[in-house]
Design a protein around this nucleic acid. Structure first.
Length: 408
RNA sequence: GGAGGGGUGCCGGAGCGGUUAACGGAACGGUUUGCUAAACCGUGGCUCUCUAAUCGGAGCCCAUGGGUUCGAAUCCCAUCCCCUCCGCCA
């Protein structure tokens, strides 16, 4: 959410930046008109309240009450519309972000050497079957397409990744958090995710409850501090959250149907940072560096993508994705993402901070540490001729094995 | 599931029908000061308005939404949440 004063005074900027993100801006003029009526009604209601306060006459009092009721009813309607429109205004992209579409995304860094195999390589589905690490078929039988079992090496590997990631982040001063896997709509919308009323919603809703299954721990981690006033000395707040994540993947039917790249349920370790406004750009680079450090330690080739404006979504002002090398696809695929949302989410969630006696909206950032996808990259990049795969050196102590052998 | 108690500012906590958020603490700013500490002074949040900005002016906010009243934090109703005890389950 943006400051309405900023929108009012910089309408052209807001419009241009919304266009750059690929948003329809026809509602913005509506918003401005709505804001005008809202303010006019506030002035009228304030005046009536002032009269009410200073009045002791019975008849006059009743009269004031009637017109107050009328104005307040109208005000409620206008406010409701105003708030809905406000939630639709996207966060402008940062100044250093390229204006353009997905095609303008920029590779800002490439790291590692693409492995050369002297045998016919397998994809993670085959390796998962041969090592009895991933059972997609039974996941589908018991749950639905898009759910899967991790077994044996697969299960150990995932737990190892979580432990490794948590250990690293704790050493960097992050607070480890295991969050609920559901959240009320308030936190979901507060983070800029679609409301449940939207048809193409990306998240599952629990019927009969004000609860959604979260698509990322960002929702529960950010929601933790909604409606709070933080003390400036508490900042930056750094969380390493672990949660299950649920995504409907509506609108992506037919994409990545093979394997576990795109699934309805996975586990993710997510960083969230809430910091002073002037420090958010530095933190964004730090989060990217942490993500890179992990892929370097795993010794898996990757590239860093800086997203162009059109690929940012509503909340992000800047976003970097890390794409890891996936041998079976012969290309890099997204495995992490880090965004700075400036004060967009903190406004929506009403997270404030008192800094030098001034109440401000702090800035918020998020970044993936691990999700289910790294398992794919590890299996494929570390595969051996017989279908087994090596465990990356940094994970061996956590897994307790050097090699995940095939099941005979 | 049953019975009771309670939701007031950053925190604790008073007020229980008459315009005003008592009081205490924390934090921050200021004064004083070799330094630190102490002491003293100042500062609730939100919105609208004025302003280049500050200052100023006005209104709102006592869990949420209604109601009663000339007037509601205070009385009534509904809803949500928290706590204690009992029961049930583990």
């Amino acid at each position: 959410m943006l400051d309405i004063k900023f929108i009012r005074e910089n309408l052209k900027v807001v419009k241009d930046s919304a266009i750059a993100k690929g948003f329809d801006i026809s509602f913005l003029d509506d918003l401005v008109a709505c804001d005008e009526e809202r303010r006019s009604l506030i002035a009228q209601i304030d005046k009536l309240n002032s009269e009410k306060k200073n009045n002791t006459d019975r008849e006059k009092g009743k009269e004031i009450k009637d017109s107050l009721k009328e104005k307040e009813e109208r005000f409620r309607e206008v406010l409701d519309k105003f708030e809905k429109l406000m939630l639709r205004v996207p966060n402008p992209s940062a100044l250093d972000v390229k204006i353009g579409t997905e095609a303008d995304n920029e590779i800002v860094k490439t790291w590692g050497t693409i492995p050369a195999f002297d045998f016919k390589i397998r994809d993670h589905v085959e390796i998962g079957e041969l090592t009895d690490s991933i059972d997609i078929e039974r996941g589908t039988k018991v749950a639905q397409s898009g759910f899967y079992y991790l077994k044996n090496g697969g299960a150990l590997l995932e737990l190892a990744l979580v432990n490794y990631a948590m250990k690293k982040l704790v050493s960097k001063g992050f607070v480890p958090v295991i969050t609920p896997n559901v959240a009320k709509e308030k936190s979901v919308v507060g983070c800029g995710y679609q409301a449940r009323s939207d048809k193409e919603r990306q998240i599952y809703h629990i019927e009969g409850e004000d609860l959604d299954l979260i698509g990322t721990a960002e929702i529960t981690l950010m929601g933790m501090h909604s409606d709070e006033v933080l003390n400036g000395s508490e900042l930056p707040i750094k969380y390493a959250g672990f949660s299950y994540c649920y995504r409907t993947e509506a609108g992506s039917y037919g994409k990545d149907v093979r394997g576990i790249l795109r699934v309805h349920e996975f586990r993710k370790t997510e960083m969230v940072v809430i910091c002073k406004p002037e420090e958010s750009d530095i933190w964004h680079e730090k989060l990217r560096e942490i993500e890179e450090e992990i892929w370097q330690e795993l010794e898996i080739p990757y590239q860093v993508i800086k997203m162009a404006s059109g690929d940012l979504g509503s909340a992000a002002a800047r976003k970097y994705d890390i794409e890891a090398w996936m041998p079976s696809q012969n290309k890099y695929r997204e495995v992490t993402s880090t965004s700075v949302t400036t004060d967009f989410q903190t406004r929506r969630l009403n997270i404030r901070a008192k800094i030098n006696n001034e109440t401000v909206y702090p800035h918020a950032l998020n970044g993936t540490v691990f999700s289910g996808r790294p398992i794919i990259a590890i299996m494929e990049n570390y595969q051996r001729e017989d279908g087994s795969f090596e465990v990356p050196a940094v994970l061996r102590d956590f897994v307790g094995k050097d090699i995940i052998e095939i099941k005979k």
